[in-house]
Amino acid sequence: MSKYKLIAFDMDGTLLNTQKKISKHTVTALNKAIDNNKHVVLSTGRAIVELSDYKKELSNLQYGICESGAFIYDFKNKKIIHQDTIPLSIINEILDIAYHQDIMIHLLTNGNSVICKDDLEKMDKYNMEIYKSMFTQVATIVEDIYDYAKKNKIEKINLYHTTADARKKTYETLKNLPLSFALAETTSLEITSLNVTKAKGLKILCNYLNTNIANTIAVGDANNDLDILKTAGLAVAMGNANDNIKLICDVIVSDNDHDGCKEAIENYLL
């Protein structure tokens, strides 16, 4: 049996294939790992509510490092293990910048997903059309996203742009604020409180489970997985991962359309 006790999977581009599904072979491998007393953990930028489409496939998983590490959750006991929120003063600065640009604002709050009604029908403009059905099903739709953000505790803000250049401009404007940033999708800027990362989330969860971080595996494909891959005991890149990820990982498995996650479980966790 492998020395590794825990495996953390990114979702989009990793656990999910290009059709945003989890293959039957991968589900079987996940459950086999859990049956062998291994911790199978999600490491995702998504909020809890955005996992509802995968409730059946992931029914045996107990823990999630969600919202890029800002929200760590015990699914079985419906318990928040750890939560980081962005200070209101900083939120106001972010919103002020977003207001003067063509940006779609997406808020993650207490495990929920919140967007503006006006943005739902033009998600393709912000290169997020593949997620439209998910937002339609699970997001809280509000009339005024700015007002909502100022009245609720926010763990994470996603700013969706029309182009990568526009995202770069926003990042350059915000980068000196005490925040953590991650580039996701093609034009998304993900924002959490300072020092909030998937890596920090993994450390918090390992401490909670009394597990040595050297005995963990992280699997990912994109730049927002870099920190957790560098932190875990074994870094696994998907075959579809970008070059930055492949360069720093210990091993590379098949891509997300050919059960790379199943391969990671069978070859390294079990």
Rank of each mutant, 00 (worst) to 15 (best):
M1E: 04
A8S: 06
A8C: 10
A8M: 01
M11Y: 03
M11W: 04
T14D: 01
L16D: 05
N17A: 13
T18I: 15
Q19W: 12
K20I: 14
K21E: 12
S23R: 00
S23Q: 02
H25E: 11
T26F: 00
V27E: 03
V27F: 06
L30V: 00
N31L: 05
K32T: 05
K32L: 06
V40A: 02
V41I: 07
G45F: 00
R46A: 05
I48S: 08
I48E: 15
L51I: 05
S52C: 09
E57K: 08
A70K: 02
A70P: 05
F71Y: 09
F71V: 05
D74M: 12
F75C: 10
F75Y: 15
K76S: 11
N77D: 14
K78T: 12
K78C: 11
I81R: 06
Q83L: 12
D84E: 10
I86R: 02
P87I: 10
P87W: 06
I90L: 09
N92S: 15
I97F: 10
A98H: 02
I103H: 03
M104T: 04
L107E: 08
L107Q: 07
L108V: 14
T109S: 15
S113G: 06
C116F: 11
C116G: 09
K117N: 12
D118M: 09
D119C: 03
M123A: 06
N127R: 09
N127H: 09
N127L: 07
I130Q: 13
K132R: 15
T140Y: 09
T140C: 15
I141D: 10
E143A: 13
A149M: 13
K150D: 10
K150C: 15
I157W: 08
L159M: 13
T162F: 13
R167K: 10
K168N: 15
T170Y: 01
Y171S: 02
L174H: 07
L174W: 09
L179K: 01
S180I: 03
F181K: 01
F181Y: 05
A184S: 12
S193P: 11
L194T: 15
L194F: 10
N195P: 10
T197Q: 02
T197C: 11
K200T: 02
K200C: 02
L202E: 00
K203H: 11
C206H: 01
N210Y: 06
T211A: 10
N212D: 05
A214V: 14
A214K: 11
T216C: 09
I217L: 05
L226P: 04
D227P: 06
L229Q: 01
T231W: 07
T231R: 01
A232C: 08
A232I: 03
L234D: 00
M238S: 01
I245D: 00
K246Y: 12
D250L: 04
D250P: 03
V251C: 02
V251K: 00
I252D: 04
S254T: 15
S254I: 14
D255Y: 09
D255L: 07
D255K: 08
D255G: 08
N256W: 02
D257A: 13
D259Q: 01
G260F: 00
C261S: 00
N267M: 09
